[in-house]
Nucleic acid binder design. Structure first.
Lengths: 152, 152
DNA sequence: GCCCTTAATTAGCCTAGCTAATTATTAGTA
DNA sequence: TACTAATAATTAGCTAGGCTAATTAAGGGC
């Protein structure tokens, strides 16, 4: 490395990506900090959110489906479920039709937690764009939605 | 929770924040996956990048300064430095003027690694905006820079 | 009834953070 | 000058949240 040109972004798209990367840590930290007062992490909240959306679909969630939704391994889901069950936020019951499977559902305590946590969650999400006008925020939303599509 | 209205974004700014949060995991994973072939993590690369920028400033970096720059604790930096030193990417020497302090500098092996890793890093960063036109990417860059300023 | 597949779990590992306690050195002061 | 404070880095030990590989249990096909 004769000069340090390799460490500066070679073009705007590269700079953009790096900025996204830096922002990534920040937003995760922000949300986790905000949720600390509810004693829940962003990753556990995400799992509960999936379960809470069950009211629309009729069938309860299986660990394997949750894993797919979260983009993590089944064993990681099991770990999280064990913790969440310890705190009575969810219950696991054996599926009667196929006893290899497990039905996971959110409890009323879990719903209570969501009622507590979600306002904080949304407020923190909202505050990220405090430096932007409403129009800018809308613009940004559109652009980020386009980016998101890459990873599907 | 009578309905599940609490789990859907109450307004566009909230949705925007949530999208940033989801994107956060994705971009971190992408970069780490890309860097895997160099056997380096995004977090260790970040540390090396700080050291590599030393050529501009005259004084070598101290662990405490690195910690501040990365926004993590000194003990966490020590851990990373131990690993990086094991692989000969950096060296630590005692500061002669004040022997409580340590000078951290990147080695030629460390520079070699950067030469290998940075093209992959920049390519991955660049690819995040593949779905965007050049003009959209520039727009997005401006907006994200505004957001970034919140956390300073 | 036996074998293969599938679902979940378990065991054990890794990374990268954290706090609290320790060590070594410097600086200030009675 | 010797003692005490403060400062820098490190160490020890913990946690969260991932991972793979191995295990257990149940179902399905022949």
């Amino acid at each position: 490395m004769k000069d340090n040109s390799i460490i500066i972004p070679p073009q705007p798209r590269a700079e953009l990506g790096q900025l996204l990367l830096y922002l990534a840590d920040d937003v995760l930290d922000c949300v986790n900090d905000a949720l600390e007062q509810c004693n829940i992490s962003e990753s556990k909240l995400n799992l509960l959110l999936i379960l809470a959306s069950t009211s629309t679909s009729s069938t309860p969630f299986k660990p394997s489906v949750i894993a797919k939704r979260l983009g993590i391994r089944r064993s990681s889901v099991t770990k999280q479920l064990i913790e969440l069950e310890k705190h009575h936020f969810i219950i696991r019951t054996i599926n009667e039709e196929d006893q290899r499977m497990v039905n996971v559902s959110i409890t009323s305590e879990g719903c209570q937690l969501l009622n507590q946590a979600m306002p904080l969650y949304w407020q923190t999400c909202t505050d990220f764009s405090n430096n932007l006008t409403y129009e800018e925020a809308l613009q940004l939303l559109v652009l980020l939605k386009k980016i998101k599509r890459v990873n599907d």
